[in-house]
Design a protein around this nucleic acid. Structure first.
Length: 826
RNA sequence: GCCCAGGUGGCGGAACUGGUAGACGCGCUGGACUUAGGAUCCAGUGCCUUUGGCGUGGAGGUUCGAGUCCUCUCCUGGGCACCA
């Protein structure tokens, strides 16, 4: 008997798959398509166990679908722009490209060793000009449509990254890459995409994402943060200007006693006439900015503010109210101004108490409602009082009535607001896609003409210095204005790498096309992605950009459809020592060691068996031996029976089988059924693998010497076992399959089918309960009628011993499951 | 504070629409084989005061019957956070 030598087996089949081009696919009409995608990896140089889990999940599904007759696209590439490469290059005065491509080579090797079924012909590497050219092209299109624009704003800044960060790259107030570096706010002029203009579209689209996990959908909804309310314009006394506020509680507007502006509200400059006052406000604004930068992420600052000297007029009742600035009013939400109703808003209440401003009650609890506590604003909805013509209305009715009123009078009305902000895409870094724009003293901001794309990133060594290395490369910066031909300067900011990962899946459909961003026909064939597998940490960042981009490409006429992903599988994180496994935390476990020791098949089985994929997984290597043993047992069991199963026929209905033989067949068919549904419906690979282990245990207990049809029934059991195992542990399965059948490529076989008749049990254990407590069990034949079962149960020796001195008041029979006698003392 | 998940043996985890709690694996205990084993095989393994009792974070409830449904509560993880 041959020993299970995983090393030679794995190398052998990897080579065979390569030579046969087993995983290379083309668009073909004769098969249904299935596009399975795993999130684009960053080429850090090493896979870690989180990756292994990710790819094992995706690969199992690919192989499963393939065996179900699908034309499966399973591509891979590298998210190869970004900071680690740049930082490594700065360290050694080298070219980030070298570091990147070296790492890509290493990782290709690791993927190969894992035996993942990728079509390498479609590899996409985002730092190559043929890819990032189209980032630039897309940017120009957005510029044309007015979706890309430049503005000055307050931005998240990480001192270690030396660049701005998007909101999604800020975690608990710290940089996502440097969790020891607090993010500060900086005023900068940057490029943006009008992301928030599409908030409603993105929100509505969520309803169509039926096969996305609920938690992701909820996170996206919260991130978009829609709130319905009203906008009301307040006139300014002694000016023809007015101040707009956003509120969700227009019903409290008769309770307004002052107004609060964000300290950096742009109207302050226009409306404050007193220069000393203005200077004071500016000072205050600076102080607030500093405080916000310093404060802990979840710390709430004490409310502070100052009067501006402006007086506003409440359009509902003509009351004159003072306008203040306050440190708690955010400029980038709503209009940056709030109407203050200290009677019915806790923040306004605190502010009013501190500065001795009026507090007015305009809402009282509806009948049966509870009054608020002492020292707190009453923030519940209720019934209006002191509100003129609106008195007596419920808050709900008042909101409608007042919105209408404001609309009629032309000073406001119903409106919606979103928390979602525009997408800042500028990064002050070298290793990224250059933004294709030129600044000319005469012509202003000039887009690079399409024919001049790509704007190439200089292929040079870089070194530590102040600011972005790109800005100091003369040959790059100095150029001619495309319009007037005079000397001009290039934009030196590069694009956020989230751009790269927002459309890569479409490039896989035709990775070689050079005349367009994507191949429309190929994209329409493969898209949308049928299954997207990746980490939960991308729930709002990447996955929202991904959706936004798809819709913009649709608007450009490059593809049909609205959503890029049909079914999303978010795997839990791999945790070690209480932290997510990542290079920056220094707690990565490289799968190489495991592959060396146990082989790729065992490593894959282990990462799937440990827990269901959506759960976080605390790293613990202890169980791996069990899967290694399992692989050996499969090997040894099949080897031991090889002689009798090799030439046997599959069992047929005519042959009389022994009880033990029937049992093997039953278990075989039950296993096929369970594995199929566990994989297809829930992707619970742990229970699917457990079921295969059970089948193996059943076969181990079977004595082939005593059963005349051992050959056929074992062939059925073991061949099907190998075929099911092929989606989890492809190498050993190929080898065993060829040993049994003499043929190659189990991956091209049809997935096993089960027969419910064979899977059905013929004897059943019925549980006997007395008053709901388990007391005994009896065995019955399938299909036994109720009366017979109840009679058997009553006569059961153990059960009947409970009846003495009691009477049976009720008998419950759950078919094929249990009998419950409800008894009472006589 | 608000919104999501989730609490089951020593451990990872099973349990479909309420119906034998603990599948499968790890670990542990005992045995067999062996010069030896951290290899392999066999048996056992929720807890206890063991003709029985108790057990799915805790307290109630619904039900013939609850890990599963309802109410309250505690804990853990994640997301958002002065969002007007």
């Amino acid at each position: 008997m041959k020993k299970y030598d995983f090393k030679s087996i794995e190398e052998k089949w990897q080579k065979k798959w390569d030579e046969a081009g087993s995983y290379n696919v083309t668009e073909r009409a004769d098969k249904p398509k299935f596009y399975c995608l795993e999130m684009l990896p960053y080429p850090s140089g090493h896979l870690h166990m989180g990756h292994t889990r990710n790819y094992s999940i995706g690969d199992a599904i690919c192989r499963f679908k393939r065996m179900h007759g699908y034309n499966v696209l399973h591509p891979i590439g590298f998210d190869s722009f970004g900071l680690p490469a740049e930082n490594a290059a700065l360290e050694n005065n080298s070219n980030p490209k070298e570091w990147t491509f070296k790492n890509i080579d290493t990782m290709r090797g690791q993927f190969r060793r894992l035996g993942v079924s990728y079509d390498w012909n479609r590899e996409v590497i985002t730092c190559k000009p043929e890819y990032y050219k189209w980032n630039q092209w897309f940017f120009l299109k957005m510029l044309e449509k007015g979706i890309a624009y430049r503005k000055k704003g307050s931005l998240n800044w990480c001192d270690k990254c030396n660049t701005v960060l998007a909101n999604e790259q800020v975690e608990n107030g710290f940089c996502w890459r440097h969790n020891d570096t607090p993010v500060i706010q900086k005023e900068l002029v940057q490029w943006y995409f009008r992301y928030s203009d599409f908030a409603e579209e993105l929100l509505q689209g969520i309803d169509t994402l039926e096969e996305w996990p609920e938690r992701v959908v909820t996170m996206q909804r919260n991130w978009i943060g829609k709130s319905t309310g009203s906008t009301v314009k307040f006139k300014i006394k002694g000016s023809d200007k007015n101040l707009a506020i956003f509120t969700t509680r227009i019903d409290t507007i008769f309770g307004v006693t002052f107004m609060t502006l964000a300290p950096d509200h742009p109207m302050i400059d226009e409306l404050v006439t007193d220069n000393t006052k203005l200077a004071e406000i500016k000072k205050f604004a600076n102080k607030v900015r500093e405080q916000n930068a310093k404060k802990a992420y979840d710390e709430e600052l004490e409310k502070e503010g100052m009067p501006t000297g402006i007086t506003a007029i409440n359009p509902f009742d003509g009351t004159e109210i003072p306008v203040w600035v306050g440190n708690f009013v955010l400029m980038d939400y709503g209009t940056g101004a709030v109407m203050a109703v200290p009677g019915h808003d806790q923040r306004d209440y605190e502010f009013a108490v501190k500065y001795g401003l009026d507090i007015k009650t305009v809402i009282v609890p509806a009948k049966g409602g509870t009054q608020s506590e002492e020292g707190k604003a009453y923030t519940e909805k209720g019934v209006l009082v002191n509100s003129g013509q609106f008195d007596g209305l419920s808050s709900y009715d008042a909101i409608d009535a007042m919105n209408k009123f404001a609309e009629q009078k032309g000073f406001g009305g119903a409106s919606v607001d979103y928390k979602l902000k525009d997408w800042c895409l500028s990064r002050q870094r070298f290793w990224g896609t250059p933004i294709p724009v030129i600044y000319c003293d005469d012509c202003g901001t000039v887009p690079v003409p399409e024919k001049d794309l790509p704007v190439l990133l200089p292929d040079v060594n870089i070194s530590r210095q102040e600011g972005n290395p790109l800005a100091s490369i003369k040959e790059f910066v100095e150029t001619a204005c495309p319009k007037c031909g005079k000397k001009a300067k290039r934009e030196t900011d590069t694009m956020d790498t989230f751009i790269d990962s927002s459309w890569y899946q479409l490039r896989y459909c035709d990775a070689k096309i050079s005349e367009a961003m994507i191949n429309r026909d190929a994209v329409n064939y493969w898209s949308p992605v049928d299954l997207y597998v990746g980490g939960i940490e991308h729930a709002v960042g990447h996955l929202m950009y991904f959706r936004w981009f798809y819709r913009r490409l649709r608007d450009l006429g490059l593809l049909d459809g609205d959503e890029p992903v049909k079914r999303l599988m978010t795997q839990g994180m791999v945790i070690k020592d209480g932290a997510k496994m990542s290079k920056s935390k220094g707690n990565v476990v490289d799968p190489n060691d495991m592959i060396n020791k146990y082989g790729a098949d065992t490593t894959r089985l282990f990462s799937l068996f440990a827990s269901p994929p959506e759960k976080d997984l605390e790293w613990n290597e202890a169980g791996v031996e069990g899967l290694y043993r399992f692989a050996h047992r499969v090997w040894n069991t099949i080897s031991a029976h090889l002689d009798i199963i090799k030439d046997a026929q599959m069992p047929d209905a005519k042959t009389e089988l022994t009880e033990a033989e029937q049992q093997i067949r039953r278990k075989t068919h039950q296993t096929i059924k369970k594995v199929t549904s566990d994989v297809e419906e829930r992707m619970h690979f742990n229970t699917a693998i457990a079921a295969i282990m059970e089948l193996l245990n059943e076969v181990s207990g079977f004595d082939s010497g005593k059963n005349p049809n051992a050959g056929p029934v074992l062939r059925e059991a073991l061949l099907n076992m190998v075929m099911m195992l092929a989606i989890f542990a492809p190498h050993i399965s190929e080898e065993l399959f060829s040993m049994i059948t003499g043929e190659e490529f189990v991956i091209d076989r049809k997935w096993p089918e089960w027969d419910d008749k064979i899977a059905a049990e013929n004897k059943l254990t019925i549980v006997i309960q007395i008053n709901g407590k388990l007391r005994s069990q009896i065995e019955i034949n399938v299909g036994e009628d109720k009366d017979t079962v109840l009679k058997m149960a009553r006569n059961d020796e153990k059960a009947s011993s409970y009846f003495e001195g009691f009477e049976i008041v009720k008998e419950i029979y759950v078919p094929n499951k249990l009998v419950n006698f409800v008894i009472k003392q006589k």
